[in-house]
């Protein structure tokens, strides 16, 4: 299978604090890939680096065959249309209605007719499990779970190959969280997505992830499937996974 993301020897320094010191990981096509680790280990930072919101100090990141260090402006624009990003709090544009939020990338990047865009928006709304009457609400009028779903619909608007999720189930009640997991699995199967996510939700980790990378002490301490993770001698892994399902 093709490598979708390759992270090589990435080093990140905030002021004087070293966050990452030589990270290496590989995300393969069609995987649901999890970034895990104790809080403050730089999971979200790594995610932000992958989506070009933050620069790395050294090393290289390759996303969909684009080398992020030397990417040209036009290439960056092309790349941005090939991925979707779901932020922790949704980050819907508060001045736009849900349907306008979802339609925005379509309006900007395509020359589709209004009717066609409406159709697409309706489809995306139904695929994430929102009701069509929610489409006319503003982000401030809906609940946290709905915001996440709407934000997911927006990130799927351009039919991306790659989806980044930053703590998709945090702040959701357990039922919505399980629904969200099922949704992500369903989307991966229907749309053939590759998904990279940061998560703390053990249930969701076991239900959805194909492989994980554990970041601890500025490095990757484990990369691979969840099956044999418990054999790894690491304090975080032992406390986080140790007691589960025993």
């Amino acid at each position: 299978m093709k490598n979708i993301i390759e992270v090589r020897d990435v080093k990140t320094i905030f002021d004087e604090r070293i966050v990452h010191n030589g990270l290496n990981l590989t995300v393969k096509e069609g995987e649901i890939y999890g970034l895990l680790g104790p809080s403050g280990c730089g999971k979200t930072t790594l995610l932000r680096e992958m989506v070009m919101l933050q620069k790395i100090n050294s090393g290289s990141i390759k996303v969909l065959d684009y080398e992020l260090n030397h990417i040209k402006n036009e290439e960056a624009q092309q790349l941005r249309q090939k991925w979707g990003v779901l932020f922790q709090s949704g980050a819907l544009f508060s001045s736009l209605k849900l349907k306008e939020n979802i339609a925005l990338p379509l309006v900007e990047y395509t020359n589709l007719s209004k009717a066609m865009i409406n159709e697409i928006v309706e489809y995306k709304i139904s695929i994430v499990g929102l009701k069509s009457e929610d489409a006319n609400l503003y982000p401030s009028q809906i609940s946290g779970g709905m915001k996440k779903k709407a934000a997911l619909a927006r990130s799927l608007a351009m039919d991306p190959k790659l989806l980044f999720l930053d703590e998709p189930t945090s702040g959701l009640d357990p039922i919505s969280a399980r629904e969200f997991d099922a949704l992500i699995l369903k989307l991966r199967d229907i749309l053939g997505l590759t998904i990279v996510m940061v998560s703390h939700d053990l249930q969701s980790i076991y239900d959805t992830l194909d492989s994980v990378a554990i970041i601890d002490n500025k490095k990757i301490v484990y990369e691979g499937s969840l099956g044999n993770i418990k054999s790894v001698k690491n304090e975080f892994i032992q406390t986080f996974f140790g007691k589960y399902n025993e």
Binding site: R48, L53, V85, F87, S89, A91, S94, L104
Partner: peptide, 17 residues
Amino acid sequence: GAMKITQELDAMRTMGF
């Protein structure tokens, strides 16, 4: 400023706007 706090600016950037 408020858009920055709610990550709306980040969202715009990742969507290429």
